[in-house]
Amino acid sequence: MELMTRKEVWNITYNHALGKTASEFFTQIKESARILGRRCPSDGRVLVPPRAFSDESLEATDEWVEVGPGGRIEAFTITYEPFQNLPEPPYAFGYVLLDGASTAIGGYFKGIDLSDPARAAEKLVVGTRVKTCFAEEKDRIGDVLDFWFEVQD
């Protein structure tokens, strides 16, 4: 007897409601290439990406604040290993604290030669200044991948 295996694939579709706050955020990205956060009235922190409430104060946020386009790298990694349903490596991504924001937002880092890991990592160290770059208006769909970050010269 041979030990058998069976291949099974899960494939289910979802339509996730984004809510007003995220809808406004993505509309501003798509139409105006602007990144907005929401301010928490109790501690003044500006949440980026915007949330309707703060999970720390548990208060509803009440004010839109435009942030960036400049910012500082808070974390990065460079992926060299291929994973199913993720992009072909290598690619760099991570989190940026945009000017005026209290929390960091994720995005790709582009414009860096990634062939030498150690040298590429040096260009992206925590604290490095970056600027937000947006796709052409016709290519923006209202998603976090409509923008990315490039190191400022």
Binding site: P49, A75, T77, T79, L86, L145
Partner: peptide, 28 residues
Amino acid sequence: DSQTVLNKIWDPIYERPLPLGTISMLAM
């Protein structure tokens, strides 16, 4: 591919579109 499953732990609105997995998360 466990990293494909683990990408689905992030919220579909803001962080899942990023190429996140548990390895990249803890690399950061």
